[in-house]
Design a protein around this nucleic acid. Sequence first.
RNA 1: GCCCGCGUAGCUCAGUGGAUUAGAGCGUUCGCCUCCGGAGCGAAAGGCCGCAGGUUCGACCCCUGCCGCGGGUACCA
Length: 691
Amino acid sequence: MKTLDLQETLRERVRRIALEKFNIKLDAIIAEIPPRTELGDLAFPVAFELAKRIKMERGEKLPPRSIAEELGLALENTEGVSRVEVAGAGYINVFYDRATFLHRFFHSLQTNGVSGEEKASASTASASDKIIVEHTNINPNKAAHIGHLRNAVLGDTFVRIMRTAGHTVEVQNYVDNTGVQVADVIVGFEHVEGMTLETVRELDASLPPERPFDYYCWDLYARVGLFYRHGDANAKEDPERLRLRSETLRLIEEGDNPTADLAEYVATRVLDCHLNTMLRLGISYDVLPRESEILHLHFWDKAFERLRETNAIRYEAEGRNAGCWVMPTNFHASTDEHEADKIIVRSNGTVTYAGKDIAYQLWKLGRLRLDFYYKPFRRYPNDHIAWITTSDESKAVGANGSTPNFGGGGKIYNVIDSRQSYTQDIVRQGVAAVAPEVGANASIHLSYEMVALSPAACQELGIELSTEDQKRAYIEMSGRKGLGVKADDLITRLEMVAKVEVSERHPDLAEADATATAHAIAVGALRYFLLKWTRNSVIAFDFKEALSFEGETGPYCQYAAVRANSIFRKLDDEVYAQATKFVSQMNEGDANAKITDVLGGETGDELWTMIALAARLDETIAQSAAQAEPAYLAKYAFQLARAFNLFYHRHRIIAEEDAARRSVLVAIADVARGQLTRSLATLGIQVPERM
RNA sequence: GCCCGCGUAGCUCAGUGGAUUAGAGCGUUCGCCUCCGGAGCGAAAGGCCGCAGGUUCGACCCCUGCCGCGGGUACCA
């Protein structure tokens, strides 16, 4: 029995009774979890709503309390409900039949442990509609930093949540290989360092593993920022040097020249580094659509044509934006400093990100009637392949019928930080103009706040702060200035700290096992750290906090699961079989009465709280999915771990002498570890054997 | 200027569609390993939920205004 099933039944009954007894049609029935166990397992504040509606519709004044009493009475004989109480000013508090609930819950986990399975088959309609999630999307011109990690972990976790909820999800990582940021680093190679494709290749081959190509580009990108300013970070950019950037950008877009070839090499190599970084955190992709193909396969041309036809964009013959194609907006007022219009095509003919993204979104929604060619880019350890787009039909794999089919999703989620809300609004407006049939709502901006640096983190990184900045709660990272915490550095550091702990606690563990365990802990710590904040909270990154394994952290949750597993390692098989039989078989002898007895009283309340919480996983997944908020699931996993630790501390399981009680305790520990493990897996966190 | 987000315990944050006693983690103080793993458990202290109005039987939550902080308003993304 999933809590949701019983909840749904009760909601339906409330709806029906309200109609029968009061002739009121309620559309949404609010059900809430009461604050304390004494107040029941589910509460309906529906009497207040009914009192209001009755007064409005018939002018009749009925006190909420009497309405609640009448409704509660009618709810009482629902199967699985032991009693109903009316409390406060008119709450209907429902108490479940604990023994029946435990046994159905336990039995359902025994028979189909995988949480989403049941739902996937139950909601085939929504499952047939493919969801596309776009995340990571790091400019392929430098190493990934913790801000990029927040994006990828958020996106990847959302994908896991949607899949667990029974949806079909396609994961895309968009590669902006023809943007200004790539152009900048190419200016660096060509004009600052005087290098060519050949010498860059040699350089790449000569780099040490701990300072790979993306690290090199990180530094070079910062140097280019200085180059534009003649070495003075506070000076204005030299327009003459900026012209190198726009010309480089034009050459990259055009293709088929040495600069474009170099850009292709650099962007591909950096992308490869990013995929390595993400794989360390268990993050992988299905397809890597590249901006260069948006251009070369005429996706943009087609989108451009349709944007013109629908008058979504117009050509500016004069003024500040002379020679550009712009999209007029009313998102904000224009001032002397800021134009209200957004430039889509620059005066030198190159296309801004917003323009290319409109074409990309249209393709994702299946509205462009054009497609990419694909070739394999990477085979993951589990044999999954990440495909990359190509404009060269001859290189595409699939002549033998194995061509993958991407895009054309029913619903699109774009994981992009909130600073880009304006650009995303532009993109949405463009998409809606060209494809009014899907409108502005098919594509969802899954926004989140940035990761900034705490003053302490800046100090540790050796970044000098102005007295003004020292007073701030956090300092924004800057790729252009090379200011930030590199993802790989942080992961490595976490692994080292974890390794020390593991080796200390388990000196007998083989080296490879200790390393693997430390890795699992590092991933748990980092992913949880990035997920515990809700999306619209700025993370002020702090090393001490990120490197902590205590309190509200991933390792705390992992530890609870490891402890639970160790009970079952030690538990006699016979005893486990006995417990399983006792709890999962309904109405055998006096099992029901005995279970009811164990779950009664004050101690029983405590046990029951643990069971009720463990049963709430599906509901939490559904909420996380609906709100696109992985933090809900992260908080739930922590709550579950905390509840389990308390339960573990209060009750001896193996040593319990009363057989019925022992069986119940075993069953509770079993459902708790199962649900905790599933929660963590959905967060992308593994539970090691020992830690 | 305009648009978006945020002001909740010393610090960092939860609080989902309005309701009973506003919750965590960190930090502070004090306890707990003859007992399935102390990366743990318990307890204490700590709150005009930014301010002022409004709606309501009832507001941390909804509405309006104000104050403060952050982000955006690029021919960057």
